[in-house]
Design a protein around this nucleic acid. Structure first.
Length: 155
DNA sequence: GCCAACGTTGGC
DNA sequence: GCCAACGTTGGC
């Protein structure tokens, strides 16, 4: 199976690509996903897959860099911890539906590729993140889309 | 801060 | 199983 590509959204106020770069080994667990479709995408990730790091809920929003999946899906302990903002009372230690992966910093783009810019680029029309009302926080991206965006970042 | 769009919940 | 109400996301 060749590498797969993804887009992962985070609000930079809670966790930014700059936070990730400062972590030991530039690695952090991507936790707190509480949507089944996004969870399924996390579960489908393979070691070595690459993901666009996307800053959401900022103006403008956009892709700011690339991370690598360095650990495949494992149970997200936050779901079991009442102190966690991501606690889910329905999750049990033997039946925890929520997973997380580890991501490692790969690169930061020299500039943000903003959402308005992405909308203008031929070949990206079908991207999930461009759809009206798109809220999925972990999305698949095709190899072609990923390549186009890296090209924009390299300019 | 507003509000459209979405996913989830819960009454029936 | 339907669907209205609700809470959340996220662009603007």
């Amino acid at each position: 199976m060749p590498l797969q590509y993804w887009l992962m959204k985070s609000e930079p106020d809670s966790f930014s690509i700059w936070d990730l770069r400062k972590r030991p080994r530039k690695t952090e667990g991507w936790d707190g996903v509480r949507n089944y479709q996004a969870r399924n995408n996390l579960s489908a990730m393979k070691k070595g897959d690459l993901a666009l790091f996307y800053h959401s809920s900022v103006s403008p929003a956009g892709a700011v860099g690339v991370v690598k999946i360095t650990k495949t899906a494992y149970p997200d302990p936050g779901a079991l911890n009442p102190e966690s903002p991501y606690f889910d009372a329905r999750a049990k230690p033997d039946k925890n539906p929520w997973v997380m992966v580890d991501v490692t910093f790969e690169k930061e783009f020299s500039r943000m590729i903003t959402l308005p810019e992405l909308r203008e680029v031929p070949g990206l029309e079908k991207m999930e993140v461009l759809k009206r009302g798109s809220r999925l926080s972990v999305q698949p991206v095709t190899a072609a889309e990923f390549s186009i965006i890296l090209g924009l970042a390299g300019k």
